[in-house]
């Protein structure tokens, strides 16, 4: 039996919002509460009337991928790039021209070169 551990997780996510998956049960079951938490984390507004359908869909998908846990991957290096290419480096020089006006031309709302969003600080 393998348990997930937090090694390698992003530092900012120090809270755990889900119950630990138990690999003894192969059927993953997310409830409406879990769907609401995931949607909140993903910044997705999901209508309450759809919680049940998403709960069923997500449980189906997660149960399906549970079969990965039957495989022994001890000592197997995770694969990042198929041909093991690493990140290229380039000289630290300015390579792009200023295209702010063009990029902001497609924004929903801008003013004086700034992107506008609802007030964050009262």
């Amino acid at each position: 039996m393998r348990h997930p551990h937090t090694h390698g997780s992003p530092k900012y996510a120090t809270f755990c919002v889900f119950p630990k998956p138990s690999h003894e049960i192969t059927r993953m079951s997310l409830d409406k509460e879990a769907v609401s938490r995931i949607a909140q984390l993903a910044r997705l507004r999901v209508d309450e009337s759809e919680y049940e359908l998403y709960a069923r869909n997500l449980s189906d998908i997660l149960s399906f991928v549970e079969q990965l846990n039957a495989v022994d991957t001890t000592g197997v290096e995770p694969m990042a790039h198929p041909v093991e290419a690493s990140q290229r480096l380039r000289p630290d020089e300015v390579s792009e021209t200023d295209q702010r006006a063009q990029f902001q031309g497609i924004a929903p709302r801008v003013e004086a070169g700034l992107y506008l969003v609802p007030k964050v600080i009262e």
Binding site: P4, A13, P21, Y54
Partner: peptide, 22 residues
């Protein structure tokens, strides 16, 4: 949502890392 769940705290190794090993 599946991806958010798989990458959330405590689940990264069990899902993403495991899948990359597979």
């Amino acid at each position: 949502m599946v991806g958010t769940y798989a990458l959330s705290a405590g689940y990264y190794d069990a899902y993403y890392l495991k899948a990359q090993q597979v």
